[in-house]
């Protein structure tokens, strides 16, 4: 492997969309009127994020936000999560959690790669799958979402 390839791999990991969302996270605030909240903790690095959801009477996620600190991957993932699940039904958001975490923890180019995954923007995280220690950074916000939607009282981890 030569230097250029190593550089390309880095660019595959830190794609422009990820760097953009890490630098300028969307929906980065506390929601005082949140109906569902959860905290995600990455034990490896001590990073912590809080997720806030407003779910209306029709079981629809009408607003999502987050706060916290973390690496570029975890911040971008949380930021893109808030965009992805806004206006989804709770059932769809739960299904989205399943699909996204399954996708991110699947080996690159594994079975079912092309057919199932329809969240095109989240493909920005495909490069993370080559870095086992970093996959948890990408899934942390999603585990927090799952905990929030299912009213889990203990902090979500990626374990």
């Amino acid at each position: 492997m030569n230097y250029t390839l190593a550089k390309d791999e880095l660019q595959d990991l830190y794609r422009e969309l990820i760097l953009d969302h890490a630098r300028t996270p969307r929906n980065f605030r506390r929601l005082a009127n949140a109906t569902h909240t959860a905290t995600g903790i990455n034990a490896l690095c001590g990073d912590k994020l809080h997720l806030y959801l407003v779910v209306d009477a029709n079981d629809r996620v009408v607003e999502t936000s987050f706060e916290g600190s973390g690496c570029a991957i975890s911040m971008a993932s949380a930021s893109l999560l808030t965009e992805t699940i806004s206006d989804m039904s709770v059932a769809d958001a739960n299904a989205c959690f399943e699909t996204v975490t399954r996708h991110l923890t699947r080996p690159p180019n594994g079975d079912g790669e092309a057919t199932e995954f329809t969240f095109e923007k989240l493909r920005a995280f495909d490069g993370v799958r080559k870095y086992p220690s970093r996959v948890k950074c990408a899934t942390l916000a999603w585990h927090a979402l799952h905990a929030a939607l299912n009213h889990s009282n203990s902090p979500a981890t990626t374990e």
Binding site: A6, E9, L10, L13, Y14, C45, G70, C71, A72, I73, Y131, S133, R134, C137
Partner: peptide, 14 residues
């Protein structure tokens, strides 16, 4: 303000 984990991954890549 690069997060240490991002730095660790970039360095590992080199």
């Amino acid at each position: 303000d690069i997060h240490p984990h991002d730095l660790g991954t970039i360095l590992d890549n080199q």
